[in-house]
Structure formats: structure tokens, C-alpha cells
Design a binder for these strands. Structure first.
Lengths: 140, 140
DNA sequence: CTACTTATCTGGACAAAATCCAGATAAGAA
DNA sequence: TTCTTATCTGGATTTTGTCCAGATAAGTAG
């Protein structure tokens, strides 16, 4: 896995640093749909000296290069995931914030065409489903 | 209009205050798809002594009562609008943030059914379309 | 393998957006 | 008119994230 990641980084002209690898591995193995602070803690298990700023820098850099994907549910800190390139969507529990992937229900990305685009050139349709997860259903 | 708003407020057991009316009117007449800071300024034209906190309190209260609707495009402060109850969607320009309403393209609210709901009970599908508005297209 | 360029990292200050708090005010019920 | 308490005011605080300057180290060129 490290090897593939290194190739992806070099292909994007990014240096391969241990901080960067720690962040990517934290998201991949511990941080699916987790926020930056969680990722800081998870990545520090791998590299204790890691600075908070390096995590934020890398989350931004990796997101902009398409190596990570950022999702930002209303009113919550941004979450990160390593599944990129397919514009899938997300379903978020209103109570516990647990988040799961939802495949695009109408064709490929961008998967939705509005009836009237007001002259805009649309390149993405981002969908967030809101609901209550099985655990929170039974605990209410 | 004031009269209708007063009825809506009383129906929600909310007191009719000038601060509250100033906020609602600011959103209705000047603040479509604007953020809280803009609404503070707009509402102060009507009521100069209005505190910032009263605006935030009211935006929260009115949103929770369904008198205003809050939208939160990724990475931006929350925006507010008076069009409520139809779960329409939004199209946001990546460059200038201009935002327009988009009618639900697939039936009524919630307008989308994912293929697999993971056991969640879904009550809303929130869609944000991202693109480039006509003005920003021509200025690039 | 060594030197060099500069991307990246560190630590601390700072900013944006919004909430919390305590006392003052005023809406609306009695 | 009085009273209760929702609401408002002003200031401190929190959360999430960025900016900055100097130190470090990745990758390139010799």
C-alpha cells in the first residue's frame, strides 16, 4: 500500500514525507469519515511528533490533488475519506453523526441534471442524505 | 406582510419583537442567500441598535421553527432564505458564491431514494450543485 | 555521495463563524 | 397594571481552521 501511495504522491509532484504517509494511513485505516482532530490523534499514533498544522496542510494538499476527498455536512467539521473519483454520496445520522457511503443513484458523476441551470455550467451534484442510524433508532 | 409574519410567529409561540421582524424582513427583502454578517448589516438599517447576538439567536430560532431555512454550502458560512417547506435545492458558483434556487428534479421531498439505506431512516436529501455562473464564465 | 533548492514541517499567533453567559429589557398573560 | 420569562445586549469564549517565520529534510543536480 505504501508503495502505491508513494507513486500517487510522486505523480502529483508531492514529496513523500513520513508526515504525509502518516496522515494518509490514518485516514485509510482509522479515519474513514472522521474529522481533522480525529485524524491528528490517529496519525500521531504512527508519528507522535506530528504537528497539527502538518495534518491540516496535508489534508488540504491531498484533497486538492484528489488523493483524499473532503465532505462537509452542514454544521459539522469537515470529514475525510480515501475513496475518490466516483462522486459517491453520503448518509449522515442526525444524532451520532455516523456517516456511510451511498452510491450514486442516477447514473454517473455529475449524476443529477436540474431542470433549469440558470446559465451556470454545472460540474458537480453533491448529495447529503440525513436520517437516523439503526443504533440511534433503537436507543430512542 | 408584517401581519402574516406576526401570525406565523404567534403560531410558533414566538414573541413578536422588532428585532425579530427586522431579521425576517432583512432576509426577505435584502438577504436572499446571504450569510449572518450580511443579515446583521441589513437588519441594522431597519433597527440600528440591533445586537449581533440577537441576529444569531433569531436565525437559529426561526430556522428551528421552520420560518427560515438555513443552507450551508461546504466551506462557507451558513446562508438563509425565506422560501421554506418545499425542500428545493441550490446551485452555487465556485468563484463568486452566488446562489440560486433549483427545483427538486425528482418528485417531492425527500426527492431521492438511495439504492441502499444501510438501515437508516432517511428524512431528507440535500443537494448542492456546484458550477460557474454566467458572470464568472465571461470574466475568465 | 555532497551540496543545493525549496517543499514541507513546527510552534505559535491569528481569524472566522458561531455559541455561551449574566444581567437588563420588554412582550404578552393574568 | 403587574408579573413572568422570553428575548436582547455586550462581552467572553469556543470551535474550526488559516497565517506566518524560521527550521528541517526530500529530491535533484553535480
Amino acid at each position: 500500500m505504501r508503495r502505491e501511495v508513494e507513486i500517487r504522491l510522486r505523480d502529483s509532484s508531492l514529496r513523500v514525507t513520513e508526515q504525509r504517509l502518516a496522515v494518509i494511513e490514518a485516514v485509510e485505516y482509522e479515519g474513514k469519515h472522521q474529522d481533522a482532530e480525529f485524524i491528528v490523534r490517529a496519525a500521531r499514533k504512527r508519528l507522535p511528533s506530528l504537528s497539527r498544522q502538518a495534518v491540516f496542510d496535508n489534508l488540504n494538499t491531498l484533497t486538492s490533488k484528489g488523493i483524499l476527498r473532503r465532505i462537509e455536512p452542514a454544521g459539522r467539521p469537515a470529514l475525510y475519506e480515501t475513496r475518490v473519483g466516483d462522486n459517491h454520496h453520503h448518509l449522515v445520522c442526525r444524532y451520532c453523526m455516523s456517516t456511510v457511503d451511498i452510491d450514486c443513484s442516477v447514473g454517473s458523476s455529475p449524476c443529477l441534471q436540474p431542470l433549469n441551470d440558470h446559465g451556470y455550467v454545472i460540474d458537480e451534484a453533491e448529495v447529503v442524505y440525513w436520517g437516523v442510524c439503526p443504533t440511534c433508532q433503537s436507543s430512542n
